[in-house]
């Protein structure tokens, strides 16, 4: 299983954790972000994701290095969809394995926060009556 993956195919929350943990680990956390049917009072029909793929992979590496430094978690995988994703489907999976649950939870949470802050992926929300680019933090990233 690849450590980092960008794919137009459905994500597999079981496969992402396969072979991730070692005999030292006591915890595996798998986070799945799924597309919900309502957002800001709108009825969502589906999402479409666009990625700057050549940059996504080095930024995933940067996030993994940060997670290693902060939490000592070395076994981390990130899989993200591109293209159309329907209601109820996973758009992102993060898997973290660690000797103890606290650091595994923290690693998965921090990874998701960083994905939303610096990973060059964008989603367009198609809702009843229109569509819009969803935008994260407006403050430009400079380093």
């Amino acid at each position: 299983m690849e450590r980092f993956r960008i794919t137009a195919e459905p994500l597999d929350e079981h496969a992402i954790a396969e072979g991730l943990s070692t005999s030292e680990d006591g915890a595996v956390v798998v986070f799945s972000g799924i597309v919900r049917a309502r957002n800001k009072g709108r009825k969502v029909l589906h999402l479409e994701y666009e990625a700057y793929e050549a940059m996504v992979y080095p930024v995933f590496e940067r996030v993994a290095e940060d997670v290693s430094r902060r939490f000592g978690v070395e076994r981390l995988r990130i899989h993200h969809r591109i293209g159309r994703v329907d209601i109820g489907e996973s758009s992102v999976l993060v898997a973290a394995a660690s000797p103890h649950r606290g650091s595994a939870f923290e690693a998965a949470r921090h990874t998701m926060n960083e994905i939303k802050r610096i990973v060059p992926i964008w989603k367009r929300e198609f809702f009843e009556g229109g569509d819009v680019w969803v935008e994260g933090p407006k403050e430009p990233v400079t380093e």
Binding site: P58, I121, W133, E135
Partner: peptide, 26 residues
Amino acid sequence: NHRFVPRDTLLAAGDELAFLPPVSGG
């Protein structure tokens, strides 16, 4: 070249420059 930089960064020939709106992955 796939790294975030400040806007006043000097460019070299052959560079790949990208303009990225606020990201919204996840």
